[in-house]
Amino acid sequence: MATGFATKRLSKELSKIHGNLPPGITLVSAEGFQEWLLDIQVLDSNPLYMNQTYRLKFKFSPSYPIEPPEVTFVSSPDRPIPMHPHIYSNGIICLDLLGQQGWSPVQNVESVCMSLQSMLTGNTKNERPEGDANFVANNRRRPRDIDFYYHDNTV
């Protein structure tokens, strides 16, 4: 496999991740450099997210980190999709950081996880985004393409 700059950069991130991750973030799997899974937990006593673990899926393009990774929550029996006014029930996250506009190459997997942790920590509303059902039923676009339309959303 040719090693483009994405692979090089991700291999560096991976070695760092294996060394130490901030509390509440764990690497689940990193098979190759296209897709990684990480688990995050909200550590403070926010009643919405207490004692829950959420699974994140990162998908990297060969242009990472120039282009943002595609980050979504994935659900499984013991990994629900967190309740948040900017997280759709299919796991798609509405966060400017992950859009073409808000992304910066200095961000990394760890910093994205931490941003999401803090996005959950600061939330008090037990609700989904407006039009969630409709969106979930109809959306076929990749998250990176959706972000294109609502980048100016402030979280």
């Binding site: 509405c94 039009g131 969106f135 959306n139 959706i146």
Partner: peptide, 8 residues
């Protein structure tokens, strides 16, 4: 999906 996103 534009309409569904706009409210945000």
């Amino acid at each position: 999906d534009r309409t569904t996103i706009k409210p945000l």
